[in-house]
Simulated scan of single mutants.
Amino acid sequence: MFGDYTPDQLLSIFAMQGFAGLILFSVFVLMALGLAIIFGQMGVINMAHGEFMILGAYVTYLTSKFFQAYLPALFPIYFFLAMILAFIASGALGMLVEWLLIRHLYKRPLDTLLATWGLSLILQQAYRSIFGAREVGVELPSWMMGAIHMTDSIEVPINGVFVMTLTMLITVVVGILMYRSSWGRQVRAVVLNRDMAGAVGINTEKVDRMTFGIGCGIAGVAGAAFTMIGSTGPTSGQLYIVDTFLVVVFGGAQSLLGTIASAFTISQARSTLEFFTSGSMAQVITLIGVVLILMLRPQGLFALKVRR
């Protein structure tokens, strides 16, 4: 596999695929952060998580069209407002779904899987009816176009650097929320012992609704970032939901650090293997590797330690 390339060529290939893997890593992390909060902290298998991401992507698309038509002078900064609107739209829909559907299915993981799978089909059809079956693309501001020339053979796209920077900022914010805020302490208390948390005055229903809403809101931001590297269609979210669950389970369902480490490992492996094999073969090899590791360590790379 490597014999047809010189050492310099291999170095350039690994560097380019490494940067491409970092962009894929960014999408995985943004998707997995929201899913880790919902699945890891609440035990809810949300098969509609990809559709919350696509809602954020469509909100970004609509925002770009609005700025192009009515505020062309402010078009270079529309993306920052689009991310906020994507978070609000996906988060609000998530809280509504939790109130109408999810709160009746806690501690019934198979039922949540079936219910959210049906929700994903409903949302896909809604997107198809509203936006059409064809994929749509977002026009990026001029300052996001082009690439940074690292060497003569290595270029890094500017929009990819922006997505990676955005991912790091959101990861830091989520970490602060989970481990340094009163809401994070309440979430962890509910996870460890829901009955005791309620006994000491924590409104567990409110915590659940906020947790689900924030997890879906982060997925909406992932959708906004997704528009920079791909086109948006009604079923685009389903392309990432399996990989996202794989990232969360492999890293440890309740570990923020595990989610990041897992996303980095899987994205880098897939990006490098895709160059030397094919996209489908790279996914198969990566999946086999993850399954083998989980057979040896079923709790994932990092597991939450709980005193029994």
Rank of each mutant, 00 (worst) to 15 (best):
S90D: 09
T116S: 13
E135N: 15
A36H: 02
F87K: 07
G34M: 07
G40E: 02
G50L: 00
N159P: 05
R128F: 12
L140F: 07
M150G: 11
G132P: 07
V44M: 10
I84E: 05
M31R: 01
V156F: 05
N46W: 02
G91Y: 11
G56V: 06
I38G: 01
H104F: 15
P76K: 04
I77V: 15
M42K: 11
D152Q: 15
D152N: 14
P76I: 03
E139Q: 11
T63F: 02
L100E: 11
L110F: 14
S120I: 11
Q68H: 07
W143N: 09
A92T: 11
A89F: 10
W99G: 06
S153P: 03
A57S: 15
M95K: 03
A133W: 10
F66D: 04
L96W: 13
E139A: 13
I37K: 01
E135V: 13
E135Q: 12
M95P: 04
G137Q: 11
Q124L: 12
P141A: 12
I102G: 03
I122A: 15
F80A: 14
A82I: 05
L100I: 07
A57Q: 04
L123A: 08
I45L: 14
T112D: 07
F87M: 07
M145F: 12
T116L: 00
G43H: 00
L96T: 13
G137K: 11
V59A: 09
A133P: 00
V136R: 04
R108Y: 06
L35D: 03
L81G: 05
T112W: 09
L35H: 01
L113D: 00
T151V: 08
M144P: 01
F131S: 09
F80G: 09
L35V: 01
S90T: 06
M47H: 03
G118F: 05
M145N: 08
T63E: 01
L123N: 02
K65W: 07
A147F: 13
L71Q: 06
F75N: 00
R134S: 14
V29P: 09
G40Q: 07
P109Y: 13
V97G: 06
K107Q: 13
L113Q: 02
I84A: 15
Y78S: 11
M150H: 09
L140A: 09
F80H: 08
A89V: 06
L30E: 03
V59D: 01
A147I: 09
Y127S: 04
F75H: 07
P141Q: 10
R103Y: 12
E139R: 13
I37M: 15
V136S: 14
W99Y: 11
G56E: 06
F66M: 13
G50Y: 02
K107R: 12
R134F: 14
I84C: 15
L62V: 14
H149T: 05
